[in-house]
Write a protein that binds this DNA or RNA. Structure first.
Length: 316
DNA sequence: AACCAGGAAACCG
DNA sequence: CGGTTTCATGGT
C-alpha cells in the first residue's frame, strides 16, 4: 500500500521513471481507451506509447508514457520518459502524481471485481476488460469543459468542439517534430465573451456555462479541493448542480472522472444505456428505473461499472 | 435525409 | 411536482 511521501517511482536511466503499478493492472486496456478517438488532441497514442504534455508550475513537461522495460512485466508496469529533459525533483513528483491519478494507479478495485464479477450483465465485461482502470481527467476545469461541451451531442462532435477550444485558446508545443497541446486555463476562458465560443459552434447556453465555470474557478468559488473537502459526495453534487448549465449528468460525470468518486453514476448517459442495451441483446434502450436498479446492484462501484460498460462501446 | 447524440433549463398543467 | 418542449449543431 501507498504511504504519503513514499516515492512511487525509480529511475531506469537519466530521464526514464518506472512507476509501481497495482496487481491486476494492464496498460494495454488503458491504451485502448485512450486511443478511442482520432480527434483527441490532449494526448496522442502511437503504438504502445502515450504522448502527453503537462503544465507544471508554468513550464511544460513533455512525456512519453509507456510499458515496462522488463519483458516479463510488459503491460503490467508503466514508465514515463521525460522528453524535454528531466525536471527538478519536485516537478517530477508532480508529474508522476498526475500520471498516477490519471491512470488511477492507487485505488484498490478488488471490491469492484468481487461485486461486479457476480453480476450477470457486468461479469462478462469485467472478464473481458480485467486490468482496466478508470481513466480520469484530473483538472477540474478541463473535466467540466469536456463534460459541458459533450452534453447532448455525439462524441465525435464533442471531440471536435474540444479541439477547437484548445486550438483557439490553449497552447501548442512542438518538440522534435511532435505536437503537444495544453488545455486553456480557467483564466484564459474567464475573460472571453460568449460570442467567441459561439464562433466555435458551442451553443449559446454552453458558451455562457463555460465562461461562468471559468469565472467561478478563477474566483476560487469552485475548486477541486473545495469539492473534495465537502466530504459527502452528495454535497459536491449539489454544489456542482447549483451552477447553471450543470445538471445531474454533468455533475456525476465530473465526480466520476475528476473527483474520483467510484460510485458516481451518470444515470442519463446515452452511452451507458447503449452499452446496457447491447449487453442485454435488446433493440430498445433500458428505462431509467431499470438503469437505476442495475446501478443499485453495482454500488458502491457504479462509476467503475459505467466506465467498464463504456469500454464495450468501441467493439463493433 | 431523418434521426439521434456520453443533457439542461424553461415551460406547462 | 412530473412530463414536455426547446436549445443547436453535426454525425451517421
Amino acid at each position: 500500500m501507498r504511504s504519503n511521501g513514499e516515492r512511487q517511482y525509480r529511475w531506469a536511466d537519466e530521464a526514464l521513471a518506472v512507476l509501481d503499478t497495482p496487481e491486476d493492472y494492464h496498460f494495454d486496456e488503458a491504451l485502448a481507451y485512450l486511443n478511442r478517438s482520432e480527434s483527441e488532441c490532449l494526448h496522442q497514442v502511437e503504438g504502445r506509447t502515450v504522448y502527453k504534455a503537462l503544465d507544471i508550475g508554468g513550464e511544460p513537461v513533455l512525456m512519453a508514457i509507456g510499458m515496462g522495460i522488463v519483458e516479463e512485466a510488459q503491460g503490467r508496469t508503466v514508465t514515463v520518459r521525460f522528453l524535454n529533459g528531466r525536471p527538478e525533483e519536485e516537478r517530477v513528483g508532480r508529474s508522476i502524481a498526475f500520471i498516477r491519478e490519471w491512470m488511477d494507479l492507487d485505488t484498490d478495485i478488488s471490491g469492484f471485481y468481487r461485486i461486479g464479477g457476480q453480476d450477470p450483465l457486468l461479469g462478462p465485461v469485467i472478464e473481458r476488460y480485467r486490468g482496466l482502470r478508470l481513466i480520469g481527467v484530473p483538472s477540474l476545469f478541463e473535466a467540466l469543459c469536456w463534460t459541458v461541451a459533450g452534453q447532448q451531442i455525439n462524441l465525435a462532435f464533442a471531440y471536435t468542439l474540444k479541439k477547437r477550444l484548445v486550438e483557439a485558446f490553449g497552447s501548442r508545443i512542438v518538440h522534435e517534430g511532435r505536437e503537444f497541446m495544453l488545455f486553456p486555463s480557467a483564466e484564459q476562458i474567464a475573460s472571453l465573451q460568449p460570442e467567441e465560443l459561439r464562433e466555435l459552434k458551442f451553443t449559446g447556453s454552453k458558451a455562457e456555462t463555460l465562461i461562468r465555470i471559468a469565472r467561478l474557478i478563477q474566483e476560487g468559488e469552485l475548486s477541486k479541493e473545495g469539492l473534495l473537502e465537502l466530504g459527502d459526495f452528495r454535497e459536491a453534487e449539489k454544489k456542482l448542480i447549483s451552477v447553471r448549465g450543470i445538471g445531474p449528468w454533468t455533475a456525476n460525470y465530473v465526480m466520476m472522472r475528476c473527483l474520483r468518486n467510484r460510485d458516481a453514476f451518470p444515470l442519463a448517459d446515452v452511452g451507458l444505456h447503449n452499452a446496457i442495451r447491447r449487453r442485454l441483446g435488446r433493440t430498445e434502450k433500458p428505462s431509467l428505473p431499470e438503469v437505476e436498479d442495475m446501478g443499485a446492484r453495482w454500488a458502491p462501484w457504479r462509476a467503475y461499472a459505467t466506465f467498464y460498460l463504456w469500454s464495450t462501446l468501441t467493439e463493433s
